[in-house]
Simulated scan of single mutants.
Amino acid sequence: MTNRLQTSGWIALSIALAMLGAAVFASATGGLHVEAGGVQMTLQTSAETGLQLVFAAAS
């Protein structure tokens, strides 16, 4: 049980660090835009509005 919790903790830490890295990258470049299979994701960060993640589906 302890080994499983430790593994889950490392996975959660990795995901959190990846999200933080994406936010820093989006802040430095003015935004991050990803499109795959008709779904668009836009990540924008600023000091005034904070972190904004927008999903849109193209039809």
Results as ranks from 00 to 15, higher is better:
1 M>K: 07
3 N>L: 15
4 R>P: 05
4 R>H: 13
6 Q>A: 14
6 Q>Y: 14
7 T>V: 14
7 T>E: 13
7 T>P: 00
8 S>V: 11
9 G>E: 05
10 W>D: 15
10 W>I: 14
11 I>D: 05
11 I>F: 05
12 A>D: 06
12 A>R: 04
13 L>Y: 11
15 I>C: 06
15 I>H: 07
16 A>Y: 00
17 L>A: 14
18 A>N: 06
19 M>A: 15
19 M>S: 14
20 L>P: 02
21 G>I: 00
21 G>P: 01
22 A>W: 02
22 A>S: 09
22 A>Q: 05
23 A>S: 09
23 A>C: 12
24 V>P: 01
24 V>F: 05
25 F>K: 10
26 A>V: 02
26 A>K: 00
27 S>W: 13
27 S>H: 11
27 S>R: 13
29 T>F: 04
30 G>F: 00
30 G>R: 00
31 G>K: 02
32 L>V: 04
33 H>G: 06
33 H>A: 10
34 V>Y: 15
35 E>L: 07
35 E>R: 14
36 A>N: 07
36 A>P: 01
38 G>D: 04
38 G>E: 05
40 Q>K: 07
40 Q>R: 10
41 M>F: 13
41 M>R: 07
41 M>Q: 12
41 M>W: 12
41 M>Y: 13
42 T>E: 09
43 L>V: 06
44 Q>L: 10
44 Q>K: 13
44 Q>A: 11
45 T>Y: 01
45 T>G: 06
45 T>S: 04
45 T>D: 01
45 T>E: 02
46 S>D: 08
48 E>N: 05
49 T>Y: 09
49 T>D: 13
50 G>V: 00
51 L>V: 10
52 Q>P: 01
53 L>M: 10
53 L>K: 04
53 L>A: 02
54 V>H: 08
54 V>F: 02
54 V>M: 11
55 F>T: 03
55 F>H: 04
55 F>V: 04
55 F>A: 05
56 A>Q: 12
57 A>Y: 06
57 A>G: 09
58 A>Y: 07
58 A>Q: 09
59 S>I: 08
59 S>D: 14
